[in-house]
């Protein structure tokens, strides 16, 4: 509990810091003014309310989504290496957005979001059916279906970018690295609603997940239907990672690393693991975004790149230090 309060305080402070940092630094006093005595005539206030604030909120929401998706995915597949990106939803969103750019010349972030959602939903449904989620518990099959579908969809994406105009590739390459740049309320609001509802459903599943981690037979004895939990969890992971990708582009690694970090503190019990994993991954996302704006000032480095640049070496150290190795 203390940990949670501490984390939330940290998250709040970090959000404040993230709001003040950017191509134009803003002092905290201006931030306070913008919220308590808003003056629509002042540029700084508009900037804060319509660009910086939705951006920070989106980072927190998407981070939370990825954290839960990763933790549930690892519980579901009983594989500490499972990343929600494996399920093919990232590739589905990517293909849909490339098609949107190439066929209709769409450039608007909120339109990207809807196309991304559509693509992620179709790919997610395909993985759900092909992976045989309804016919029984088989994590390997689910992951295999996701990986195979990803390869096909990404190949199609590349064929489109190779064959189309250079302007199209230029737009696409900026989306494909994952970034929070230019996302405002018309991305934040729909993404936040979908994610918050799904997060709620995910938290309800905590106890069932704990029961399931004792094995199918014990779970049944405790009155939990493994099959139903499995269906619900798969749906939660697919929706969360799909919405996250549609909103900010493919961001890998957070979903993989945050649950590992959370487990170091609170152990494998999902009732504690899920909230902490969400919190940690929101913190990571927010700090990666803030750092990305600081290192390339006044320009910025996309959050997807920053996350992997920091997370990759960190993961290597983790593997070397702790005995994650299970032969």
């Amino acid at each position: 509990m203390l940990l949670l309060v501490l984390g939330l305080t940290l998250l709040f402070l970090l959000s404040l810091a993230s709001i003040t940092v950017g191509s134009r630094g803003l002092p905290l006093a201006t931030v306070a003014d913008a919220f308590f005595s808003f003056d629509p005539a002042r540029n700084e206030h508009l900037l804060l309310r319509h660009l910086r604030l939705p951006r920070a909120l989106l980072a927190v929401v998407v981070g939370g989504a990825l954290g839960m998706a990763g933790a549930v995915m690892q519980a579901l597949t009983r594989n500490p290496l499972a990343d929600p990106g494996l399920l093919g939803v990232n590739a589905g969103a990517t293909l849909a957005i490339v098609v949107a750019i190439a066929a209709w010349g769409i450039t608007d972030m909120s339109d990207y979001m809807w196309f991304g959602l559509l693509g992620a939903a179709v790919a997610g449904a395909a993985v759900y059916l092909l992976g045989g989620v309804r016919s029984g518990l088989n994590p390997v099959r689910l992951v295999l279906a996701g990986a195979a579908l990803s390869v096909v969809l990404l190949a199609l994406t590349q064929i489109i970018t190779v064959n189309s105009d250079e302007v199209i590739f230029d737009q696409f390459r900026h989306w494909a690295v994952g970034s929070l740049q230019g996302r405002s309320y018309d991305v934040l609001v729909p993404a936040a609603i979908l994610i918050l509802i799904t997060l709620g459903c995910g938290l309800v599943l905590c106890r069932a997940l704990d029961a399931l981690s004792l094995g199918d037979d014990v779970a049944k004895a405790l009155g939990v239907s493994p099959r139903r939990v499995w269906c619900a969890c798969a749906a939660v992971v697919i929706i969360l990672s799909g919405v996250a990708t549609a909103a900010v582009g493919p961001v890998s690694f957070i979903g993989l690393a945050a649950p590992h970090l959370a487990r170091l503190w609170v152990g494998p019990e999902h009732r504690r693991l899920l909230p902490l994993s969400m919190l940690i991954s929101a913190l990571l996302m927010l700090s990666a975004d803030t750092l990305g704006r600081m290192v390339a000032h006044p320009d910025e480095v996309g959050v997807g790149i920053m996350v992997a640049l920091i997370g990759g070496p960190f993961f290597v150290v983790l593997v070397r230090r702790w005995r994650l190795v299970r032969p």
Binding site: E166, V177, V301, G302, G304, I305, A308, G311, G312, F315
Partner: peptide, 27 residues
């Protein structure tokens, strides 16, 4: 496992190179 970590770091570097590079070269 180590390969996974190193690989994703490098793929971030690749993404950075593609985004930062000149458009013709990136194509």
């Amino acid at each position: 496992l180590i390969g996974l970590g190193v690989g994703s770091t490098l793929s971030a570097v690749n993404g950075l190179l593609l985004v930062r590079g000149d458009l013709d070269d990136a194509l």
